[in-house]
Write a protein that binds this DNA or RNA. Structure first.
Lengths: 254, 254
DNA sequence: CGCGACGTTGAGTTCGGTCAATCAGCGTGG
DNA sequence: CCACGCTGATTGACCGAACTCAACGTCGCG
């Protein structure tokens, strides 16, 4: 179970990109007991209404949070990339209110709530970082409401790809301005509240306009300024590029 | 500034409806320094990108969280009723990522971050309750994504009114199954991602079907089971009706 | 009394959905 | 090696829910 040092680094990086943690706190996070698991494409690893006793951390692959209507239409309410803890809120709210599904084969880490709680109790700054991390996801979520509620298909799609690209940062760039993003058009439809057919047409339009080429599971940004303008994208809200001195800590000091 | 006992009771009620707090913690919350303010209809009391040093609590009236597109279309991403702290996350994230606007004349309480932080530091269970409270709002938010992304106008509107009714609980019922809810159809449009014109038609349809009568700033539920069925509403996710023994506390014990 | 905000209704338009066919890639088993 | 079947991508034709535009009604208020 406790594999000493099991790739919690991306998760720590995500936390420290917005919160200030001292070295003791940081190594305590890296020492968290975690238990890795492979998840197959399109399989739920957290089910609706399930009571969980651990939180998940994405190490590799892409994870979606799903909502569903009575007629079975699906809506993705969040996308999670490596380093994200799609579940962190379960520490405080163990009953899952939506399902988590791997959209690609993914490897996740399961970290027991007891360990996270002990950590949060011992280091208030860690508790604060966890809370802050959850709030970043909430800000993204409220952007999705705006996106899905008020923007037309092209703008909606542009916004989604801007967000994903900004969250990927340079991590997955292959040096030619493109990165792997192996979601199907059905997944994109579920994320944008469109139909797969219309996603196809919208992607085609964006390609013809020279803004974005998303095909065969990889994304190439053709014209970032134009795409960001169309998608009304302001990277600010992601709080991804904070300078070290902007990172927050309200308890104690470093 | 510190008015001793300034109607923090609804806020405490909201917290304790989901989290277990002992009497010391509870009275510490009631003793929080707070400073009441009247806010006029349609006036922003927290602006986008504003850096705030206090959190707000709604005492009376209805407050909306707003997002906006480049063309100026508005989208409400959350509605807040008395007892809610639309801003609680600002404790951990002081820069406002969306505006808060009073949708009716409202009275709010401003509680300095320093006081909230001191409280959270002294009582980990309070910090936990704050975090949990924010996560309830996030669950509601993800429901909104589903609502706006995948449901048609009637279902969308039905869902919204189910949510609001359930959150009001019995509080505002006047004994005849109706309650005051003085939002304009424009507000409802901004909340559902529809047009004011279409809201009008949708409300008319719901009225004709004998489900819901929303007019003149008050709401009458005509057929709750049918409305909940149409709106695909499962009150569970609001976590509003937790039995005392279901309420959570992960640090210490009571 | 007149103005402004909100609500209501009708007519016509459009964006995105639906349905359906075809294509391309890929792993499997014969 | 190749036929088969499955999943996902692509395209066309048509449809309809919601939008737009515009007019009019209603109510409260200065």
């Amino acid at each position: 179970m406790a594999l000493g040092h099991s790739n919690l680094q991306p998760f720590l990086d995500r936390l420290t990109s917005r919160s200030r943690l001292d070295t003791v706190e940081q190594s305590a996070i890296l020492d968290l007991p975690a238990h890795a698991a492979q998840v197959q494409t399109n399989s739920d690893f957290v089910r609706l209404d399930q009571k969980v006793d651990h939180a998940c951390i994405v190490v590799e692959g892409i994870v979606g949070r799903f909502g569903q209507t009575a007629e079975g239409a699906r809506q993705i309410t969040a996308l999670h990339l490596p380093g994200d803890a799609p579940d962190l809120h379960s520490v405080v709210q163990p009953k899952a209110r939506s399902a988590l599904q791997a959209l690609t084969t993914a490897t996740i880490l399961r970290v027991p709530h007891v360990a996270l709680r002990a950590l949060a109790a011992r280091f208030p700054a860690v508790a604060e970082a966890f809370w802050r991390d959850c709030m970043v996801d909430a800000v993204i979520l409220s952007q999705w409401v705006v996106n899905v509620g008020r923007r037309d298909a092209r703008t909606r799609m542009a916004h989604l790809f801007c967000e994903i690209t900004a969250r990927h940062k340079a991590k997955l760039l292959d040096g030619k301005g493109s990165y792997r993003f192996p979601l199907t058009q059905i997944h994109l439809a579920d994320a944008t509240g469109l139909t797969a057919v219309h996603v196809n047409r919208t992607l085609k339009a964006l390609r013809n306009e020279g803004l974005l080429d998303a095909r065969n599971g990889s994304v190439r940004i053709l014209d970032w300024p134009a795409l960001a303008y169309l998608g009304e994208f302001d990277p600010e809200y992601l709080q991804a590029d904070m300078q070290p001195e902007e990172r927050l800590r309200i308890v104690g000091s470093v």
